[in-house]
C-alpha cells in the first residue's frame, strides 16, 4: 500500500472512532431510558445496573397510560394540534402570498416588521394576553392555544414567501388573463406548487404544538383538559410525590410522548433540515 493511501485509511479510521465514541455518548441516555422503561422497579435501583431487562416488563407502559388518563390527554392534544396546523398554514400562506406577489405602499416596511416580531421574546406579551383571554372567559379552554394561529406566524410567513418568490409567474399571469380571482390563483396554482414548503410548515407546527408546554401550563387548569406534554408533568408531580419513585413508569410515559416526534422525524427528515437551514439563511 502506498504511503498516502495508508495515511488516508488512518484518517478515516480515526474519524469513525471519534464519531462512534461521540455517538455512543449521545445515544446512551436514550438506551438507558428504554432499558429503565422495561425493568421492574427494583431492577431500576439495582447496583450495578443491569442493562438488559429480562424479562421485558411491558406492563410499565400499561401503567404509564392508566396512572393518569393518557388516552384523554392524547385526544386533547389532537384537538388542539389539528386546528392549529390547519389555521397556521392557511393564514401564513395567505399573508406570504400577499407579501410575495403584490406591490403596495408600505409592503416592505410591513414585511420588515413581520421579521422583527419573529425575534420578539414572548414574555412581554404573555401577561396582557393572559389577562385578555381571562377577561374573555377563555382560561381553561383550548381557545387561547388555537385562536392565535388564525393570524399567521412570522417564521412560516417568511418561509412560504421565500418559496413563492421562486415560483415562475407564467401560469399565474395566464390565469389572471382568464379572469381567475387572486384567491383562486393562491389556492389552485400557488399552494400546489409550494407543496414542499407547506409540508415543512405543517411538520414544524405539529412539532411546536404537540410539544408545547408553556401555553397549556398557563391556560389549562383542569387536569382532564391537559395535553400529553402537560400531562407528563402532572404525572411527574404525582409519581415524585409517592413513596418510591416509579422511574420505570415515568420513562415509559416519556418515551410514549417522544415517539410521534421520532417517527415523524424519520418520515420527513429533509423537511426538518430545510426548515432549520431556511431560518439560518435569512
Amino acid at each position: 500500500m502506498s504511503a498516502p493511501a495508508a495515511a488516508r485509511l488512518t484518517r478515516i479510521g480515526t474519524l469513525y472512532a471519534v464519531l462512534a465514541a461521540l455517538g455512543a455518548m449521545f445515544s446512551v441516555p436514550v438506551v438507558w431510558m428504554l432499558s429503565s422503561s422495561l425493568h421492574e422497579l427494583a431492577a431500576v435501583f439495582a447496583q450495578p445496573y443491569r442493562w438488559l431487562p429480562v424479562p421485558l416488563h411491558w406492563e410499565n407502559y400499561v401503567r404509564a397510560v392508566t396512572i393518569l388518563p393518557v388516552p384523554r390527554f392524547l385526544l386533547n392534544t389532537v384537538i388542539i394540534t389539528a386546528p392549529v396546523m390547519l389555521a397556521t398554514v392557511v393564514s401564513s400562506a395567505l399573508v406570504a402570498y400577499g407579501f410575495a406577489r403584490f406591490r403596495f405602499p408600505g409592503r416592505d416596511a410591513l414585511f420588515a416588521l413581520c421579521l422583527v416580531t419573529m425575534m420578539l421574546p414572548g414574555q412581554v406579551t404573555m401577561i396582557p394576553l393572559y389577562m385578555l383571554f381571562s377577561r374573555l372567559g377563555w382560561v381553561d379552554t383550548y381557545l387561547p392555544l388555537i385562536v392565535p394561529s388564525l393570524f399567521g406566524s412570522p417564521f412560516y410567513i417568511f418561509l412560504l414567501r421565500q418559496f413563492f418568490l421562486t415560483i415562475p409567474r407564467d401560469s399565474e399571469e395566464a390565469a389572471l388573463i382568464d379572469g381567475a380571482s387572486r384567491l383562486r390563483i393562491w389556492w389552485s396554482i400557488m399552494l400546489p406548487q409550494a407543496r414542499p414548503a407547506v409540508a415543512t410548515v405543517l411538520i414544524f407546527t405539529f412539532i411546536g404544538t404537540w410539544n408545547d408546554f408553556f401555553g397549556p401550563l398557563l391556560y389549562l387548569n383542569s387536569p382532564e383538559k391537559a395535553t400529553l406534554t402537560l400531562g407528563l408533568n402532572l404525572m411527574k408531580t404525582q409519581v415524585l410525590g409517592s413513596g418510591v419513585v416509579e422511574w420505570n413508569v415515568l420513562m415509559a410515559a416519556s418515551l410514549l410522548v417522544l415517539a410521534p416526534n421520532v417517527i415523524l422525524f424519520f418520515l420527513a427528515q429533509r423537511h426538518f433540515i430545510r426548515g432549520l437551514s431556511m431560518g439560518a439563511g435569512k
Binding site: 461521540l22 449521545f26 441516555p29 436514550v30 410539544n211 407528563l232 416526534n261
Partner: peptide
C-alpha cells in the same frame, strides 16, 4: 446527533432528572 433536539422538553427533562 440531531435526534435529541427534535424532541419534547418535558420528556427530556424527566430523562435528565433520572
Amino acid at each position: 446527533f440531531f435526534l435529541p433536539s427534535v424532541t419534547n422538553a418535558v420528556a427530556l427533562s424527566l430523562l435528565w432528572l433520572w
